[in-house]
Design a protein around this nucleic acid. Structure first.
Ligand SMILES: NC(=O)c1ccc[n+]([C@@H]2O[C@H](COP(=O)([O-])OP(=O)(O)OC[C@H]3O[C@@H](n4cnc5c(N)ncnc54)[C@H](O)[C@@H]3O)[C@@H](O)[C@H]2O)c1
Ligand SMILES: NC(=O)c1ccc[n+]([C@@H]2O[C@H](COP(=O)([O-])OP(=O)(O)OC[C@H]3O[C@@H](n4cnc5c(N)ncnc54)[C@H](O)[C@@H]3O)[C@@H](O)[C@H]2O)c1
Lengths: 209, 209
DNA sequence: TAATTGCTGTGAAAAAGGTAACGCTGTGCA
DNA sequence: TGCACAGCGTTACCTTTTTCACAGCAATTA
C-alpha cells in the first residue's frame, strides 16, 4: 500500500467537487479527459490520481460518477466524520464559519473560540463561540482533530501551541506567520498575500508580452 | 536570464514578510539558515531562491536585511505600483478588502465591484464599490492588471470573462470552480475546501500513529 | 468473425523541484 | 603571517511529480 501525496489528495478533493457538479447536470458517466478538462489538468494526471482509490473505471464507459464520488468519499472522509475547531472569530473567521456551514457532512466546524468577551458565549454564524479557557476541554470532548487559525499573526503561534496541546493533529493557518509544530501535526498555510503577489508578478510578465 | 518559478516567487514573498519581522526586532543582518528556520525550509533552498535576485550576501555577515528587502521589492514589485480590482463584496470579499488595506504600498485593491444595488456606489471597508457596468471603464482608467474573484461559483466564470475582456492579465479566484482563461492570463485558485480536506486527511493519518 | 475504435491502468521516461557538497572569500586568532 | 572557520554562490545529484506510451479490453463495425 503506497501512500498518497498531498497534491493527489488535494486533486481528489477537487475531482469530488467537479463530479458533484457533473452529477447535477444529470451526468451518469465521465471520461478521464472530461474530468481533466474540468480540473485544468491532464487526463493522465486524473487516471494516475484515481489509482489511489480502489475503484476502477471501464475502458468503454469511463467512470460512473456516483460510484466515483462514493469511492473518493470512502478514501478521504473519516467514516464517523471529523470535527474542526476555528480560533479567531474576526472578519475572516466569520466568513469561513459561514462558508463551511453544512458544506460537507463528514467535516464540519463544530466549535469556535475567541478571547474577546464580546464574541464568546454565543452563536456566531451558526457556530457556538467559546472562551479560550474552554479550548482544551471542548477539543477533548468533541474529539476535534483539526484546528483552523484565524487570529492575528502575533497570536498565531500561541494558539497553535494551545491547539496542539489539546490534542489536535492538523492545523490550517491563515495568519501570515510560519508556525512551528511537531512532526505528528500536519500544518498547512493559506497565504493570501503570497498568492496575490504571485498573481501580480506573473500578470505583469504576461502583460509585457 | 533564466525565468523564476512560481514556487520561488511565492517563497520570495514569504521571505520579505519574515525579513520585515526580523527588521522590526532590530536585526541588521541575517544568515540563510536563520531565514530558512523562519520559513520552515532548508538553507540551500533560501540561497537558491535568492539567486534570482541581483543581490549577493557576504559569506561572513550573511545578508543585510534592509538591502535584501529592497532587492526583493525591486524584483517582485512594479516600480510604479500595481492596481487590483475585487469583484464580489460578500463575506469573504469584505474580509479581503480590509486585510489588504494599506498592506503593501505597491499593490493595492483600488476598486471593488458587485451586482447588488445595496452595495454599489459607496465605500465598503475603505474601497469604493462600483456597479458591474463600470468594470470595463474603471479597469482601463486605473490600469488594473489583477482581478480578485469572490463571487458565488456559478458567477465566477462570467466575472472572469468580464475581467479578462477588460484587460486584466492575472486572476486570483476564491470561488470553488475551475475557471477557463487564455494563456496570456495567469490564473491562481485559492481553494479552502481543498486545503481543509487535505489537513483533515493527514491529521487523521497522524493521529492514527 | 475479424478488424477497428477509444478508453483504462500502469511501467518507463521526462521534467520539476529540492538537497547536498564544494570551491571561494573575508575574518579572527594563534 | 598563516591557518581554521563559517557561510555564500553554484553545480551536480537525488527525489518527487508529471507526462508519455502502450498493452489490454469491451463494444462496434465491416
Ligand atoms: N481578513 C482577511 O481576508 C485575511 C486574509 C488573509 C489572512 N488573514 C489573517 O487572518 C487572521 C485574521 O484576520 P481578520 O481580518 O479576521 O482579523 P480580525 O482582527 O478581524 O480577527 C481576529 C480575531 O482573533 C481574535 N483573537 C485575537 N487574539 C486572540 C487570541 N490570542 N486568542 C483567541 N482569539 C484571539 C480577536 O478577538 C478577533 O476576533 C489574521 O492573522 C490575518 O492576517 C486575514
Ligand atoms: N466565505 C468564505 O470564507 C469563503 C471561503 C472559500 C471560498 N469562498 C467562496 O468565495 C465566494 C464568495 O463567498 P462569500 O461567502 O463572500 O459569499 P457572499 O454571498 O457573501 O458574497 C458574494 C458576493 O458576490 C456578489 N455577486 C454575486 N453574483 C455576482 C455577479 N454576477 N457579479 C458581481 N457580483 C456578484 C453578491 O452580491 C455578493 O456580494 C464564493 O464563491 C464562495 O464559495 C468563500
Amino acid at each position: 500500500m503506497k501512500k498518497t501525496s498531498a497534491k493527489t489528495i488535494g486533486r481528489l478533493s477537487l475531482y469530488r467537487l467537479l463530479l458533484d457538479n457533473l452529477r447535477r447536470d444529470n451526468g451518469i458517466t465521465v471520461y478521464s479527459h472530461e474530468l481533466a478538462a474540468a480540473a485544468n489538468c491532464s487526463a493522465a494526471q486524473v487516471r494516475r490520481d484515481l489509482m489511489s482509490l480502489d475503484y476502477a473505471g471501464s475502458p468503454v464507459h469511463g467512470y460512473r460518477i456516483t460510484d466515483l464520488i462514493e469511492s473518493i468519499d470512502n478514501f478521504l472522509d473519516h467514516p464517523q466524520g471529523q470535527s474542526v475547531a476555528l480560533v479567531g472569530v474576526g472578519n475572516l473567521g466569520r466568513a469561513i464559519l459561514s462558508y463551511f456551514r453544512g458544506r460537507r457532512p463528514k467535516l464540519s466546524i463544530v466549535a469556535a473560540f475567541d478571547d474577546d468577551e464580546h464574541k464568546i458565549n454565543r452563536v456566531i454564524n451558526g457556530t457556538w463561540c467559546y472562551p479560550m479557557a474552554d479550548l482544551r476541554k471542548i477539543v477533548k470532548e468533541k474529539n476535534i482533530l483539526v484546528g483552523v487559525i484565524t487570529v492575528p499573526p502575533n497570536a498565531a503561534q500561541t494558539v497553535a501551541d494551545q491547539l496542539i496541546e489539546a490534542g489536535v493533529h492538523g492545523l490550517l493557518n491563515f495568519a501570515p506567520a510560519r508556525l512551528k509544530a511537531p512532526p505528528q501535526v500536519y500544518l498547512e498555510d493559506v497565504d493570501m498575500t503570497m498568492s496575490l503577489e504571485k498573481v501580480a508578478y506573473f500578470s505583469r510578465l504576461r502583460a509585457e508580452e
